[in-house]
Design a protein around this nucleic acid. Structure first.
Lengths: 115, 115
DNA sequence: AGTGATATATCGAATGCCTATATAAAAGGA
DNA sequence: TCCTTTTATATAGGCATTCGATATATCACT
């Protein structure tokens, strides 16, 4: 199943940062892992990912380095910086706040009389 | 606490539709209820809400009617149509799919320590 | 008379993501 | 050999969503 594209945005940075917490990764790897870990919900496109990675690099949240692959083009690996880790924690907290609030609204139909 | 604005978008339609499941409501009331029910996480602005309501009306998801208030300007009430209810259920399902997927990624994905 | 809350409405700007496109190398089939 | 798919990175253009600023109008309180 695929997520409604209009439902959420701005969370890709959070997810990419989270992937890098696991260890350094290159772009193409992130798209595959995100697809696998989300069970086919997230289809992070190249046209979304690479500009996002460049932005994260400009902000100092990740650093990049190239490494030759056994075959094919050299891969550009990304590494999560300390700043990136801090931002990741902020974004995780913000996500939980937001998701909990949506949950309250979606479940809270009956309690409208209260307070 | 306030949700990171860049974190999510496109969910306002879902939340507004959900509010109307409870019963007919007018715009200003929706902003207050959403703020209360989300415990101050959602600050739905007038500049967001009214264009959104007009769009929902064009799509046939809600209908509108005016009713005089005891005092002040006449209020424009919105009613959830059957189509609106159907779309609401779709959007609720999409939200759960999305939120669950984010949860999976944030908890360490598929290949970490078991469940 | 002035301020703030109630109540609806529109416009311009910013942001975020996607589609389409381009480049390049290796693997596999016809 | 040629062609398509997969791997791999990258940019430009465009659409959708939301907010801030602004406008109008009535009522309550001072």
């Amino acid at each position: 199943m695929e997520a409604d594209k209009s439902l959420v945005s701005g969370s890709m940075a959070l997810l990419v940062l989270k992937l890098l917490e696991d260890g350094d990764k290159y772009g193409y790897q992130m798209t595959s892992e995100l697809k696998a870990r989300s069970e086919d919900v997230f289809h992070l496109k190249a046209g979304t990912l690479y500009p996002l990675l460049h932005t994260l690099e400009e902000k100092g949240l990740v650093t990049a380095y190239e490494r030759e692959a056994a075959a094919g083009k050299p891969r550009r690996y990304y590494h999560l910086t300390k700043e990136g880790q801090a931002v990741l924690r902020e974004k995780e907290a913000a996500w939980h706040t937001y998701a909990d609030a949506v949950g309250r609204v979606l479940r809270g139909g009956a309690c409208s009389a209260g307070t």
